[in-house]
Amino acid sequence: METKMTIRGVRGTIFMPQVKPNVDVIKELGEAFPDWIPSIENPDLNIRDKIVSPSGQWMLIAPDNNERIVFTPQKVDYLSFSHAEYSLDEMNKRMQRCKEAFLKLIAITKYSVTRIAFAPAFVINIKEKEYNQWIASIFSRSQFKVAELVETNFTQTFYVEEKIGDRKIVMNYISKLETERYVQNVEGINQIVPIYTIEFDINTRTNEALVFNKEEIEIFCSEAPRYGESFLNFYLMQ
C-alpha cells in the first residue's frame, strides 16, 4: 500500500518504582532537559520525614509542550506529541531523546527496570474505500516474523522473540486500528471526516524477575524504531 503516514505521537516506557519529585531529580534531569517545567496532577500531599510530597503522578513538561516525562507509580513514560511525516530518522530522533531521559533517570535512582516499551501512534492518510480494502487484507495475515497471530482484545497481537544485548526476550507486538470521526467544514459544508489511526505497543512481557540493565535499555531504545518499522511494513506490504 502506497500511503503517507503521519506520526501522531511516540511513547517510550520503563517500569520502575515511582521516582518522587524532589529538587535533586529535577535539577539532574534539567541538565539534559533544560527549562522543563515540573507539574503535579494530584493535589493530595504526603508528609514523610517532615517533607511534603505529592502523591500520584507528576511530570516534567517541555517548554513547547510537545514532550513530557510522566512519573506514575509504576512506570515512567517519555511522550513526544509533535506531528511529522513518518520516517525512520524521525523515530530515531525521538527515541534518542527518550533514551537520554531513561539513562539519566536510571543513573539518578539506581532503580531496577522490569519492563520496557515503545508505543508509536500514526495517522494513515488514506481514502475510505482504500482503507476498507486494506483492512480486509491485513486480517488475512496471521504471521509476523516467525510468530503466529494470538487472539486478544487488540486488533492483532504477536509474541516475537527478539535479541536485546545477549538475551533473547519474548516481546508483545500489539497493534490497534481505530477510526475517529470529526465534524469538519469541507468546502463550506459540515461533513463527518474519518481519521484512521494505527497504534503499536511493542513491549517486553510482565515479569518482575526480569531486570533490564543500562546497556539493554540503551539497545532497546536504539532498536525500537526498527521494531516499529518492521511491524509497520507488515501492515503496509501488498
Binding site: 516499551a117 482484545n153 487488540f154 497481537t157 505497543d201
Partner: peptide, 11 residues
C-alpha cells in the same frame, strides 16, 4: 493476554 474488557499486554 486476553482478559474480558482488559488489555493486559498493553503498557
Amino acid at each position: 493476554l486476553k482478559l474480558d474488557g482488559i488489555e493486559l499486554g498493553s503498557t
